[in-house]
Amino acid sequence: MGLMHLDVPEASGGYSHYGVLARFRTAKALYRACEAVRDAGYSKWDALTPFPVHGLEKAMGLKPSRLPFLVLATGLTGAGLGFGLQSWVHIMAYPLVISGKPLFTWPAFVPVTFELGVLGAALGAVLGMFALNKLPTYHHPLFRSENFARVTDDGLFIAIESWDPKYDDQGTADFLSGLGAVEVERVPIEDPRDDEGAA
């Protein structure tokens, strides 16, 4: 189906299906289920929600994002380049005394230095977030689930991938049902070329 199904996930070879997708009714139930999945020792799994559930990363046992370091680096780079450019222009490339001020008028370079620092940091934040999240990813096996369209509406999901070492076809599905999932389904990995009928 168009743009969204152009790639095949790298792990598709040798696995009969992507994994198990379970829907939960409330944020509370999802939170507890995530704690249980984490405690059961699963590692290749995800919670999928229409909005960020507060504190869910704790329940999932995720490490904090490393993005801040990148942002600091790109921000300092932007500011450094900005200050360097201005100093170079006014001292070396085009030295000209203006309003009786010395060539190296560092206070006058502060505004542009600051703005370029912010630009660098903001680009770092956005592009870094895209990179860490592997966005864009137009194709994903989860999009094959009819149900999954609710993930941007009111659906709160947990997906456990079949290549998780602890994964067990029936056991994992039962495990999720036992945690209070209202719907549990197996999500296939299909060849994108014979995919016309998918949602």
Binding site: D46, P52, L62, S65, P68, L135, V151, T152
Partner: peptide, 21 residues
């Protein structure tokens, strides 16, 4: 939409990026 699928592993970086922005 870039293939956004509400993954919480994505929300984690997303919220951090949003906070920093």
């Amino acid at each position: 939409a870039l293939g956004w699928r509400g993954s919480h592993r994505n929300w984690l970086h997303y919220e951090r990026a949003y906070l920093m922005l």
